[in-house]
Design a protein around this nucleic acid. Structure first.
Lengths: 162, 162
DNA sequence: CAGTGATATTTGCAAATGCATTTAAATCTG
DNA sequence: CAGATTTAAATGCATTTGCAAATATCACTG
């Protein structure tokens, strides 16, 4: 692939972060908001031995039936190696079950158990409550517009997968 | 404070995550999106010895002049102990400078140096580019509505501070 | 104004993380 | 179909993280 243009085209004249302002820069706001959302969930659930990777895996598995581990890693937003170890714990605690894929013997599918569903039942109200706090005072139409934009953004940033 | 109601009022009848759907649940989408945003930035900047906490501190310091360390921790969305160590590195590299607060000798203020600004100059185009990718195909009015909602959410989830 | 409690930052240390590698199995290629 | 390449998951290991404790200083209270 030949490329006529210089290796790194310097941006003509990028607006500066100071000009935009931190609180008008969407990624900054999203990191602030999710930082607190995740921190409060983590604090609330730490007593139950639920770490962030374990919570996320359970939440996804409550909705998606028997994904491959690499798929679960993407859905859960957890590094695959970290997820592998979180699944070890969840399996030991009887909350999930690994099962060899029927047609590809390299692959493993993950299933939530009844105990896992029960654990998620105690987790979900906390997630839901944190969600409600986030959206307090924001009307329904604004909420759905917001989610619509998020969905576009997700398709934008996906590499190609899932 | 006496409380007539049971310790944990069980939610009347909470909609389940499966009913809502993962891709309609805003915190899930936001974690997915920011997971990739942060990961791509981290990968791009790892070669320059810039970790996520260091990048975030530099970004905030490029905009906010001489915050206290605990303030910087909030703005940067980094645990204070982690930030303390990130600042050690940034100071060693000459990118920031710690300065004792004038009136409170417990407190430390942090300033970005010229070298720090230069480092942020190389960082910012990557942030800006990742931002552009996120918002590709999303019209200006939708973008600003989105940011408006984020700002409301930030005030909702703040504990009380900053 | 001494004593108690709160606040700012750093640091010790165990646990968690992520990169790179390994192992195993599938797929592609000549 | 043998050999090379890719893919799935687990693991070794060095680094990073975050909690809790330590240190230092300030603010409040009687």
């Amino acid at each position: 692939m030949t490329d006529q243009s210089p290796p790194e085209m310097p941006p003509a004249d990028l607006p500066r972060l100071g000009e935009i302002g931190l609180t008008n820069f969407a990624p900054y706001l999203m990191n602030r908001i999710m930082g607190r959302y995740n921190a409060s969930l983590r604090e609330e659930m730490a007593g139950l031995g639920l770490t962030t990777p374990k919570m996320r895996a359970l939440a996804v598995l409550s909705v998606i039936e028997g994904p491959l581990i690499r798929e679960l890693a993407v859905y859960s937003v957890v590094e695959q190696s970290t997820l592998s170890r979180a699944l070890d714990q969840l399996a030991t605690e009887g909350l999930i079950r690994r099962e060899a894929d029927a047609t590809d013997s390299r692959a493993t599918r993950v299933f939530i158990t009844e105990a896992g569903r029960a654990a998620f039942e105690t987790l979900w109200p906390h997630m839901s409550e944190a969600h409600s706090r986030m959206f307090r005072g924001i009307p329904a139409d604004e909420r759905s517009a917001f989610v619509g934009t998020l969905q576009k953004m997700l398709t934008n940033i996906r590499k190609h997968e899932i």
